[in-house]
Design a protein around this nucleic acid. Structure first.
Lengths: 325, 325
DNA sequence: CTAGGTGCAAATAATTTGCAGAGGC
DNA sequence: GCCTCTGCAAATTATTTGCACCTAG
C-alpha cells in the first residue's frame, strides 16, 4: 500500500517551477516503498519514459531532499539510498546484508542514551544514525515472514497510544488497589475518585486507538516500531501496598499528585525527543492531559489544606510509589 | 600518546610476507591517532618516502583491516576512514560536523536495545553502527577542553572495574543494613558474614583498579567511555528494610543467593555483549567470582537445611530486594 | 522574455584493477 | 625461481557540472 501522498502543489513553492519530468520522477519515487538508490530510480523511470537523463534524476532527488519528501541515507554500500520522509518520522535501521533490504524502528532508550552521552561529553547532537547490520528472518529461514511496516507515522502513533494506554491502565490498577487498602474513609474516597478519572481517561485513549485502527486495517498486526523500555516496566512500583493502609485524604491526594506529575514529565520528555509527527503529538497531548489532571489535584489539595489545616505528611515510601525514571 | 603498538612480527603470519613498504605504512598508521582517510595516510607517508603509490596504501589498508589492526569506518563523507582496532574495543562515535573529529564511546544500554529490537524482528545482528552528528565542545565554546581518550581498551577496563566496584559497595551496604535490622541472631550473623565477604572482594577489585591506574597516569581523569545505566541505579532496591526484621538464617542465605545470582547473571550478560578485550574479561571474571560465591552460599544453604529442616520461606518482598534487571 | 529545468558529455573523486617489473625467501 | 609486493596507468562507480537548449509562467 502506498503511503498517503503529499500534495505536490503545496510542495511546489519550496523551490522551482512545475515541470513534467520532475513530477514524473517524484511520482514514481513516492509510489515505491523501501530504499531506492539513484540508479534504481533511473531504471524505474526508464520503464515509463526512455528519454530521461541520470543527471535529472540526481537533481530531482536533491530537490526532494530539500523539499522534505525524501531523506538521503547511507548504508555503507558506497552509494546513497533515498527513503520517503513525508510524514515518516526519522528512525533507525536494521539492514540485511543478504537481501540488502532494510527495516525501520524507533527507540526511546537509544535517544535517551544519545542525550546522556552528548551531555557527558559536552557535545551538541543534531542528528543520529543507528544501523544494525545482520541477516533478516526471511533470508535466514527462507520463509516469507517480514510483513512490511506500512506508514511509519501511523505506527508511531499506534505505539505511542499503546504506551499511553498501558500507563493509564497501570495507574487505574494502582489507584484501585490503593482504594482497597486504605482504611481511612476519606483517603479511600480520594483513591476511588482517582481510579474513576483514570477509567474515563482510558476510554478516551481507547477510542482514539480504535479510530487509528480504522485508518489501516492491518495496523494492529504490524510489528513493533517504537521500542520503549520505560513503558514495559510499568510505572508503578510493587510492594508498597502495605504502606497505604494508614493514608488519609491529604496524603492520598499528594500521592496522586506525585503520580500525575511523574507521568506528565515522563511523556513530555519522551514526546519532545521526537520529530514532528502524529506520534509525537500523542505523547505531548497525553503529557498535557496529565498536566491538567495534576493541576486539578493540586487545587483540590490546596483547598483541603485550607479547610483542614496541614495534616502530617505521609510516610516516605508511598511518595515514590510511581517511578519517575 | 601513541597506543601500545602490536608486535608486527606476530601479525605477519596473518598473511603475506615481510615487506619494507607495508611495514613503513603500518608504522606510520599506528603512530597516528584519530581517524585517517586513505589520502591522509598517503600524505603522511609521502613525507618520509616520495615514491609510494596510492594503490599500495589502499592495498595495505585492506591488509590491515584483514589482519585486525585497522577498522574501516564510514562517517558519511563519501570516503572511508580508518581507525586502530588492535586492542581497541568496537565502539560508537560522536562526530563533529565542524572540525570533523570524532569521539568514541560504548553503551551497554544501546547494545541491549539492539538485542531487543533484533529479537523482536527475528533479525540476527552481526554488527552495529551508532553515530551521533553535531558540534563538539571545543568548536562551540572555542576552549580547548576535550582531552583525547587514550587507549580505549584501558578505558573500557577502567569503567568495567568502576561498575564492579560500585556494585560491590552497594552489596556491602545492603548486607550491613540488613545485619543491623535483622532481629534473629543467626540471620544477623549470615548478613554480617555476607557483608565481610563483600569487603574482601571489594578490596581485591580496588587493588586491581589501582594497578590499572599505574598503566596510565591520566587514566582516572579521562572522560567516561562506557555508559551503563544499569550500574548507575545501584542494584539494591530501597524501602525493603522493614521487611528484613523477621528474617532467620535460612532466609538470610536465600536473600544472599538471590543477590549473588542477580549479580552473576547481570555481569555475565553484559560481559558477553562486548568484543574480546580487557574490559570484557573484567566483566566475565567478576561474573565468575559472583558465581563462585553463589555456589558457596548454595552449599551452605543446603547444609543448613539438612541440619535444621526447611524453615518457612521468607516473605515475598526481600527476595526481590536486588533488582536483576 | 527569462529563470529555471533538462540532456548530453565531460569532469570529479574515491577506490580498484591489470600488468609488468622488483624484491624477499 | 617462485610468489608476492609494488608502481603506474587505466578502469570503475557514483555523483556532479558546464553548457547549449528547451519550456513554463
Amino acid at each position: 500500500m502506498p503511503p498517503s501522498l503529499p500534495d505536490l502543489t503545496r510542495l511546489k513553492p519550496l523551490g522551482g517551477k512545475r515541470s513534467n519530468k520532475r513530477e514524473q520522477i517524484v511520482n514514481v519515487f513516492l509510489r515505491q516503498e523501501g530504499h531506492l538508490s539513484a540508479d534504481d530510480l533511473v531504471d524505474l523511470i526508464r520503464r515509463d519514459d526512455h528519454r530521461i537523463s541520470r543527471a535529472t534524476v540526481y537533481r530531482t532527488l536533491q530537490w526532494m531532499v530539500d523539499a522534505g519528501i525524501a531523506r538521503k541515507v547511507d548504508f555503507g554500500e558506497g552509494r546513497f539510498r533515498f527513503e520517503h520522509s513525508y510524514r515518516q518520522p526519522r528512525h533507525f535501521h536494521l539492514i540485511c546484508k543478504t537481501c540488502h533490504r532494510s527495516f525501520e524502528f524507533l527507540s526511546s532508550d537509544i535517544e535517551s542514551v544519545v542525550e546522556e552521552v552528548s551531555a557527558a561529553r559536552g557535545f551538541t547532537a543534531s542528528q543520529s544514525v543507528v544501523q544494525i547490520y545482520g541477516t533478516c528472518e526471511e533470508c535466514r529461514t527462507g520463509r516469507n515472514s517480514t510483513a512490511d511496516l506500512g506508514h511509519t507515522d501511523l505506527l508511531f502513533a499506534r505505539d505511542a497510544l499503546r504506551i499511553a494506554i498501558a500507563t493509564e491502565r497501570s495507574g487505574r490498577e494502582f489507584y484501585t488497589r490503593a482504594a482497597r487498602l486504605t482504611r481511612d474513609v476519606r483517603g479511600r474516597k480520594v483513591f476511588e475518585d482517582l481510579a474513576n478519572e483514570e477509567v474515563d481517561h482510558l476510554s478516551k485513549l481507547e477510542s482514539r486507538y480504535a479510530e487509528l485502527l480504522q485508518r489501516d486495517p492491518k495496523l494492529e498486526s504490524r510489528p513493533t516500531f517504537l521500542f520503549f523500555k520505560g513503558a514495559a516496566n510499568g510505572l508503578f512500583a510493587e510492594g508498597t501496598e502495605r504502606l497505604l493502609k494508614g493514608v488519609n485524604d491529604q496524603q492520598a491526594l499528594l500521592i496522586g499528585i506525585r503520580c500525575e506529575r511523574g507521568s506528565h514529565q515522563f511523556f513530555k520528555k519522551y514526546g519532545e525527543r521526537f520529530e514532528d509527527s502524529e506520534g509525537k503529538q500523542i505523547f505531548l497531548e497525553f503529557a498535557d492531559e496529565e498536566r491538567e489532571h495534576l493541576d486539578l489535584l493540586v487545587r483540590e489539595y490546596k483547598a483541603l489544606v485550607r479547610r483542614q489545616g496541614r495534616a502530617r505528611r505521609p510516610k516516605r515510601a508511598p511518595v515514590s510509589a510511581r517511578a519517575t525514571r
